[in-house]
C-alpha cells in the first residue's frame, strides 16, 4: 500500500515544498526529502522502510514510529491524496 503525494506538489532539491492549491510552503530535512522522493516514485511504505533500514543506522521499530508520525504530518498538511 502506498501513500501518494499529490501530483501537483513539487519537491525542490533544497527540501522546499510548495503546495500550489493552498499557497503554503513547507520545508523538510534531508531524510524527509529522501522519503518524499521515494513516495513520489511510487514506492510502498514497506519498500521505503526497507530502503531506509538498508542505508541508515536505525532499527525497524524506531523508523516505523518516526515514519508513522511523518505520514500523519503529511496528511495534516494535506500533501497526500485522500484516497489510497
Amino acid at each position: 500500500m502506498a501513500m501518494r503525494i499529490k501530483k501537483n506538489i513539487a519537491l525542490s532539491e533544497s527540501g522546499f515544498i510548495f503546495h500550489p492549491s493552498t499557497g503554503d510552503s513547507y520545508s523538510v530535512n534531508p531524510i524527509g526529502l529522501e522519503i518524499l522522493n521515494l513516495m513520489k516514485a511510487g514506492q510502498s511504505s514497506e519498500e521505503i522502510k526497507a530502503h531506509m533500514l538498508e542505508h541508515y543506522r536505525v532499527d525497524g521499530d524506531s523508523f516505523e514510529k518516526d515514519f508513522y508520525d511523518f505520514q500523519v504530518m503529511l496528511r495534516t498538511y494535506k500533501l497526500v491524496e485522500d484516497h489510497e
Binding site: F16, I17, D24, S25, Y26, S27, V28, N29, P30, I31, G32, I35, M52, Y56, R57, V58, F63, D66, F67, D69, F70, M73, L74, Y77, L79
Partner: peptide, 9 residues
C-alpha cells in the same frame, strides 16, 4: 539517521 521532519514555512 535522523527523524524525518516536515514543517510549514
Amino acid at each position: 539517521y535522523e527523524r524525518p521532519v516536515i514543517q510549514r514555512v
